[in-house]
Design a protein around this nucleic acid. Structure first.
Lengths: 223, 223
DNA sequence: GTCTATAGATGGATAGAC
DNA sequence: GTCTATCCATCTATAGAC
């Protein structure tokens, strides 16, 4: 922004905007390739080639391949958890601090499902997050392990909504519904589509949300 | 078995038994390391070192690292699917070909849960299978994609047990319960244990089976 | 800041002796 | 069949020119 536009500008366009553009291009290319092909199957060369930047960019802008991975991971999980927290907060407001099970689950399900919509740019980010859960580095696993404060709020809300259920049952059932969410990967959708002979349509995320809520709500309200 | 025991036998013990022993040692070491650390994070050198055999063994006995991986994958998934099929068959026998939802789900859940028991040697095999679903090679993904005949039998049984539910709902709910199963990874158990403050005990697989059945049965019987 | 060239490490696979 | 030595490809990371 403070750069003077000189006659040389076209030949040496290395200002802040270019800086940010290069970094963003690396970030986007890495997220996309990691989400599609797995973390270990994508090299720094693949990323820089896809981004159209030179090989050294990853190390210059992010320090290392693993640091780049972790930065993508942290940004996307942060965004997703904020969306979930906001929806849970709104549900609290609507129900005087004690929302029903279905609305709590909706706050947990809706953000990742919206992201997974084929029409949504975030689709690739959602696949990245899911992949990070199983293929992530030790650093990511530690972050997931220690960052349970966000889930703790959901557990507390569920306890309040279903006070006659033993606390350990709350946690196990939360584990079950998270399994439902994490199973929404491309390959699993494809397999289901194949198994059902084409009956299941991946594109209908609003319908899928309702299906998941019907199933999970009934499961949570079981004795 | 047909080998003559000669005076040289002790110096040249390269008979069928040694052959099989080396191959089995490689198989076991590979399965264990892959299950614990991921497919791409384990080298042929790691495997042969763990097995106490020489570096060339993997290629001699299995052809390549990927072929070894696939052989483990095929054997274990075959064993698991046969256990499930047998339990489904027994449930059919008990109920004149039309078992209730809960017993169908039990045939789906019980084998992987028994395998996952900390007291069971197969615990590591179960983690291997779960990992293969997300980290597997293209060959494994194709095999998973095309081998749905086993799941198709479960889908048919569920349709018969719940005829008033739309077929597409059967498939989606089958997808949901499979998500529950596949979420039973070491890291997820650890995270849950951390989140619940130690309330959830991983070792109690019989209890977990009942919890999963309570939840999934209610979900399946929802309108 | 960008880019080329390359260091340095590690991986899978194999030839050839035994 | 087993084992050592080695080839060759590939990767991350970095030094140094511009």
């Amino acid at each position: 922004m403070t750069d003077q536009i000189s006659p040389d500008a076209l030949e040496v366009p290395a200002g802040e905007e270019t800086h940010a553009a290069t970094k963003a291009a690396v970030f986007a290319a890495a997220e996309r390739l990691f989400a599609l092909h797995g973390f270990q199957n994508v090299s720094v060369r693949d990323i820089t080639a896809e981004a159209g930047v030179n090989l050294a960019s990853v190390n210059y802008h992010f320090g290392s391949k693993d640091a780049l991975l972790f930065e993508i991971f942290r940004r996307r999980t942060g965004e997703l958890n904020r969306e979930r927290a906001r929806m849970l907060h709104e549900a609290n407001d609507r129900h005087a601090g004690k929302p029903p099970v279905r609305e709590i689950l909706e706050a947990l399900f809706a953000p990742p499902l919206r992201w997974a919509d084929p029409a949504n740019d975030r689709r690739i980010s959602m696949q990245f997050i899911i992949r990070a859960r199983s293929e992530g580095t030790a650093q990511m696993r530690d972050a997931l392990q220690n960052d349970v404060s966000h889930l703790a709020r959901f557990a507390e809300a569920l306890k309040a909504a279903h006070p006659d259920l033993a606390q350990e049952s709350i946690y196990w059932r939360l584990h079950f519904v998270l399994g439902m969410v994490h199973n929404n990967r491309f390959v699993e959708f494809d397999r289901l589509h194949h198994l059902s002979g084409g009956l299941t349509r991946e594109g209908d995320v609003a319908g899928l949300l309702n299906r998941m809520l019907d199933f999970a709500e009934a499961g949570f309200l079981a004795p």
